[in-house]
Design a protein around this nucleic acid. Structure first.
Lengths: 294, 294
DNA sequence: TCCGGCCGATACCGCCTCGGTATCATTGCC
DNA sequence: GGCAATGATACCGAGGCGGTATCGGCCGGA
């Protein structure tokens, strides 16, 4: 008799209909039927009277309905009191703010729902810091993308994304359905300011930092990078599957390793709150993305 | 935050030692550590302070300890009240009483522990009724062995046992480590009274009822069968692995299908109480037998 | 100072539970 | 009598959970 099972039973007892109860629980009907049957088996008495027209409660079912509601309410109070005792907590999240905007908002919403007492601060970084303040200690957990120097940092991959080159639609190469880095060797490449994470810089400038890249414009944000494509004809790189301004196209790069959208935190101080954030992030991402919807 | 997890936490909070708490919960330490860690992750706050010398509770842990105890107590009361509402219930169990004596007692004990309000009656049958009163409606559920005519009856196998022939220790064949039914063709075979289940009768008399078996003694119980071996030199059959009186040996039969120890009940009236009994039986059997200890 | 024992954490594995899809059986209704 | 609705069943794949083996870190004693 676990709380999950009682939640199932309460839903059925109130809907008096397995299908509607399942919908309310955001699941399907067969596992709900099975769970209720197992509950009856465990208690050793019938709780529901099934009929093709619907469901009725037995006396034991009526009693369990009331008691289960009270028990679930008490469980909620317990959880609230215990977390409240930990005091008002603030979690600072760093984000690259390029790709995961709507996912970030969903994530923040889910996190607030799960921890009503916690404050969550968002700190957006530009493209020059792939750890988005994590290494500097400015944030507790980061929503960013690989690759970067991850010594002392733990990451959990949410999804892996292929990378493409952003070109003006009138570019001769824009019609191709795939390009290699060599095809762009003669173009002007952007670069990041000095001090940018070397792994990160080498990746996004398309090669292990051969000197030729040095003459391109310096960019700090995705917007600057795209503007540079439009105005200066430099190449830009970005993950596939994201919206682009008018007049720009993205062509997949076939010889570039994918970049992963990750949750990152410092190994040293993985508090329960941070682990909770990571877990919620994984759950939310899986619930919204797996069919590439998020 | 399920009740199972809270039971784990209460154990750790009271023992202040993962190893002892795990022993109290009859589990091992690693999954307990993991479960507690997951609980802390879910709540988003630390409950325990670990150290190599032991464990201490945080303030949140102290609070959760009290609250969880209360919650678990309430859950127990709910369960008791709901099952009590179903009224005093009697479950009649039929048993063959040959092999599963100690298992039967453990099973009855576990069942009483799980359903304090229920009465359980044991009805022992002799070997002439393999359904031990189930088909006659005398019992609700049967602890018996195959094979028998199971039309209208559902069975769950607990374990499958090879069958051997019981011989006097001074019998010429008693030293063999395996026999075939043909080796016993010339012996006198026991038989069951008329009206015994035909499938059952054919199995235990060693063949599909060829007429020759007709001249042996009629037995109704395992004791009678063994006595007939001692006094009349008839053959006897029984599952391997059971205790035998002095002066008797059992030799495995290599060409006889195994007999299964089963829980059986009438499909038509599988109440929650009966299903509960079946489930408990399977659990108890698995907990005590799998290494052939029960 | 080093070694051994104790304790919790981690890694990894196999089973079983759980939720999903597809389908069936029953019943009431038009 | 056919059809729609409802719950039950069969089956499958992923994930959770408990198990074994092992690690790392701290303490106490020689």
């Amino acid at each position: 008799m676990e709380l999950r099972t009682l939640r199932y039973f309460v839903a059925v007892a109130e809907e008096l209909h397995f299908g509607r109860a399942a919908a309310r629980l955001r699941m399907t009907q067969p596992p709900l039927s099975r769970a209720i049957k197992q509950l009856e088996t465990e208690l050793g008495c019938a709780l529901l009277l099934r009929s093709p027209t619907g469901v009725a409660l037995t006396p034991a079912g009526v009693l369990l309905h009331e008691e289960a509601r009270a028990l679930l309410a008490q469980a909620d109070r317990v959880r609230a009191r215990v977390t409240a005792l930990a005091g008002p907590v603030t979690l600072t999240v760093g984000t690259l703010a390029d790709s995961a905007e709507q996912f970030g908002t969903r994530l923040a919403a889910a996190y607030r729902e799960h921890h009503p007492g916690a404050r969550i601060l968002i700190r957006e970084s530009d493209l020059t810091d792939p750890t988005v303040g994590l290494r500097a200690g400015l944030v507790d957990v980061a929503l960013t993308r690989t690759p970067f120097d991850d010594t002392g940092i733990t990451t959990r991959t949410l999804r892996s994304e292929r990378v493409g080159v952003v070109l003006r639609t009138d570019d001769p190469l824009a019609q191709r359905d795939g390009l290699r880095l060599a095809d762009l060797a003669e173009r002007r490449w952007f670069r990041f300011p000095d001090g940018t994470d070397p792994v990160w810089h080498a990746y996004w400038t398309g090669a292990a930092g051969d000197g030729r890249r040095r003459d391109g414009p310096v960019v700090r944000t995705a917007r600057e990078c795209l503007q540079s494509v439009l105005w200066n004809g430099t190449v830009g790189l970005m993950p596939l599957g994201h919206a682009l301004p008018e007049g720009l196209t993205v062509v997949p790069l076939t010889d570039m390793a994918p970049s992963a959208l990750v949750i990152a935190w410092r190994e040293a101080d993985a508090t329960a709150l941070i682990r909770s954030f990571v877990r919620i992030a994984e759950t939310v991402h899986r619930a919204t993305d797996p069919a590439r919807a998020g």
